[in-house]
C-alpha cells in the first residue's frame, strides 16, 4: 500500500495543488499531513479548506498551534533576532487573515496520528516545536520513536527531508536494587526509522520546489518526491496580500522564511 506524507504547507496553495496532483500520479491510496498548514504564506484559509475537503488527516503543527493559542514558543523557534521579527510579522498577518471556522478546525487537530506501526507527528512526539534533526543524538532519537510504540515515525518541521535508520540498537540496563545483587538485562531494539517529509510550501534546500514522501508499507520503501510548481504566483501573492516582500525573495531562492533549527540538543520548554 502506498501512502503519501506531506508537511509544512504554510499557506502555499500553489505548491499544495501541485503536490496533490503529483500524488495522484503516484497512485497513493492515503495521504497524511504533518501540520503547519498556515503561517508565512498568503493562502492559509484556502490551504485548510483544501485539506478538509480532501479529507486528509492532519496533525497540528507549531504554526497551527500558535494561531490557536497565540505566540508562546521558547527561543528555539527562531535562530536570530531578525527571524523572530519576521516570524511575528507573519503571525500577526495570519492571525488577522484567518477565518473563525479555520481557527476552530486547527484547534481540533491532534498532536499525533497513528496507523498500524506508523506514527505521524509535526515536530516530535514531545512537542510540535521540537526539531528531530538528522544529527540528533542516536539514543534521544530512538527514545522519541520508542515513545510512540511505532516502528516508523514520520515528522516534518525542519523543512529538510531525510530518512534515518536506527538499527542494531542494544540497550543494557544494570539494576542494583537494595538487598539484592546486581542484575543486568539486555534489550535488542528492532529496526526503527524516522522519516522527515520536508516541506510542501516553504522548502529549504536551495530550490523553490515542494517536497513530500511516498511510503510503500509493503516494501517499507521511502521515495522522496520533489515537485516543481509555479512559485512565482505564490511570490506575487505574498506581495499583493501585504506580507513582507522578503518572503517572496526567500521562497524563490529555496530559503526558509525565518525559522531554522540549529541546535539538535535543544528541547523546547514551552
Amino acid at each position: 500500500m502506498k501512502l503519501a506524507v506531506i508537511s509544512c504547507i504554510h499557506g502555499n496553495i500553489e505548491a499544495l495543488d501541485a503536490v496533490l496532483a503529483d500524488i495522484d500520479t503516484q497512485k497513493a491510496e492515503e495521504i497524511y499531513c504533518l501540520g503547519d498548514l498556515v503561517g508565512y504564506g498568503p493562502y492559509p484559509n484556502e490551504v485548510v479548506e483544501k485539506i478538509r475537503s480532501r479529507g486528509i488527516p492532519s496533525c497540528q503543527g507549531c504554526w497551527d498551534e500558535d494561531i490557536v493559542d497565540g505566540l508562546n514558543a521558547c527561543e528555539c523557534s527562531y535562530p536570530s533576532q531578525l527571524a523572530e521579527y519576521r516570524g511575528h510579522l507573519a503571525h500577526e498577518w495570519t492571525d488577522k487573515e484567518i477565518h473563525p471556522e479555520v481557527r476552530e478546525y486547527l484547534a481540533t487537530l491532534p498532536i499525533t496520528l497513528k496507523k498500524d506501526n506508523l506514527c505521524f507527528v509535526h515536530g516530535s512526539p514531545n512537542s510540535q516545536h521540537e526539531y528531530l534533526l538528522p544529527s540528533m543524538d542516536g539514543f534521544a532519537a530512538l527514545e522519541r520513536v520508542l515513545a510512540t510504540d511505532a516502528d516508523v515515525l514520520f515528522c516534518g518541521h525542519t523543512h529538510v527531508p531525510y530518512e534515518r535508520k536506527l538499527e542494531n540498537a542494544a540497550l543494557s540496563v544494570k539494576v542494583n536494587a537494595v538487598e539484592s545483587s546486581e542484575t543486568e538485562q539486555q534489550f535488542q531494539v528492532p529496526l526503527k526509522r524516522i522519516i522527515n517529509a520536508g516541506s510542501v510550501g516553504e522548502p529549504r534546500h536551495g530550490r523553490p520546489n515542494a517536497t513530500y514522501i511516498i511510503y510503500d508499507t509493503d516494501a517499507a520503501q521511502v521515495t522522496l518526491r520533489e515537485v516543481e510548481y509555479d512559485y512565482e504566483k505564490t511570490c506575487q501573492a505574498i506581495i499583493d496580500k501585504g506580507l513582507p516582500p522578503i518572503f517572496a525573495w526567500r521562497l524563490a531562492k529555496g530559503m526558509e522564511f525565518a525559522e531554522l533549527a540549529d541546535d539538535p540538543t535543544h528541547v523546547c520548554e514551552r
Partner: peptide, 11 residues
C-alpha cells in the same frame, strides 16, 4: 545580533 547580520548580508 550576529546571526541576523549574517542573514542580512546574505540577502
Amino acid at each position: 545580533d550576529p546571526p541576523s547580520l549574517e542573514v542580512l548580508l546574505t540577502e
